[in-house]
Amino acid sequence: MAVTPSPEKALWSSCAAIFWPGSMAFGFPGIMAQHWQIVFGVDRAAVGQILFFLLLGVGSSMYLAGRWQERLGPTRLVLLGTLISSTVSLALPLAPSIGAVHAWAFITGASHSCLYLPALSVVQRWFPTRRGLVAGLVSMVFGLAAAATAPLYSWVLGEAGPTALCLVAGLAALVTGLIAAPFMSFPAPRPALAGTGHGAPGLSLRVGQALRTRSFWALWCTWALAGAAGIAMVTLSVGFGLGRGLNLRQAVMILTAFNLTNGLSRLLSGWLSDLVGRNLTMAGAFVLAGTAYLLLPHAQGLYQWAALAALVGFAFGTLFAVSAPLATDCFGLEHFGAIFGVVFTAYGFLSGALGPWLGGHLLDATGGDFALVFGYLGLFFMASAGLIFLVRPPKI
Rank of each mutant, 00 (worst) to 15 (best):
F26T: 05
M1S: 14
T222Y: 13
T4F: 00
A327Q: 06
L171A: 13
G66Y: 08
P191T: 06
A226K: 05
V122A: 00
G195Y: 03
A10C: 05
L362K: 00
A188G: 07
L362Q: 07
L174D: 08
A17Q: 01
L174N: 09
F127R: 06
R190K: 12
E8M: 11
A310N: 05
W217F: 11
A173E: 09
A194D: 15
I84A: 15
C166M: 14
G284S: 03
G332R: 01
G99T: 01
V391K: 06
A299E: 12
G332Q: 08
G243E: 06
M282A: 12
L92R: 11
Q250W: 03
V134Q: 08
A338P: 06
T235F: 04
S139Y: 03
F344A: 14
S14K: 02
P5A: 13
R212K: 08
N279Y: 01
G66N: 04
V343G: 01
I107M: 12
L219I: 07
T196D: 09
W271D: 12
L171I: 11
W305E: 10
L94H: 08
I18V: 15
I38D: 13
A324K: 10
Y293G: 02
G284L: 03
L77E: 09
H35R: 08
L295K: 05
G177C: 08
A160T: 11
S113R: 00
A324N: 04
L117S: 10
M233E: 10
W223I: 15
L219C: 09
D329P: 08
L319E: 13
A188I: 02
G57I: 12
Q34L: 15
F186S: 02
W12E: 00
S351T: 01
Q49A: 15
